[in-house]
């Protein structure tokens, strides 16, 4: 379990770099164009990795529940939604609202899967996380809101 906790921290660093690169590209060609380009490059890269490693699993793909195909749809939708709302909201409000939405939805999904609701302590944990995100915006210089995938 410790390994996956460390992996989560590491993935956070990768997400941060990816978000920065996407933001730089978005400022040049617009968020929707950048999203298409990044999805395309990612797709080409993964196709190469799958060809090299031979990890194709077509049977698994066909047997997967229909709902599991929604991941890519939601990712692209996020960029479209945020490119509309973020510039009007500003970086501080946008970040807080996105993280709030993420944490609340994640807790609801966990509740649905496990059958037990979040405890008071877990809710306090979410509030602390949101407070930390709020602090990041206060300490950073103000910048134009930009869509980014966390």
């Amino acid at each position: 379990m410790t390994f996956f906790i460390v992996l989560a921290f590491f993935n956070g660093a990768v997400i941060s770099s990816s978000r920065t690169l996407n933001g730089q590209m978005s400022s040049q060609i617009g968020p929707l164009h950048a999203s298409f380009w990044n999805h395309g490059v990612g797709f080409a890269f993964l196709t190469a990795v799958l060809c090299l490693t031979g990890q194709w699993n077509t049977l698994g793909l066909l047997a997967a529940p229909r709902s599991s195909y929604l991941g890519g749809v939601f990712g692209a939708l996020f960029v479209a939604v945020s490119s509309f709302a973020f510039p009007r909201l500003g970086a501080t409000h946008a970040a807080l609202l996105v993280i709030s939405g993420q944490m609340c939805t994640a807790m609801l999904i966990d509740w649905d899967k496990k059958g037990t609701g979040p405890t008071l302590i877990q809710c306090l944990g979410v509030i602390l996380v949101l407070f930390g995100v709020y602090l990041t915006r206060i300490l950073k210089p103000t910048s134009e809101g930009e869509p980014d995938e966390a």
Partner: peptide, 29 residues
């Protein structure tokens, strides 16, 4: 919309993970 954007991200991670269970993490991505 911004709050829903966060919800979309959580759902994206959830459903990608579901795909990874049926296939593998690389295929899911």
């Amino acid at each position: 919309l911004a709050f829903m954007g966060g919800a979309l991200l959580a759902l994206m991670i959830q459903y990608n993970s579901q795909m990874a269970q049926s296939t593998n993490p690389i295929m899911a991505s």
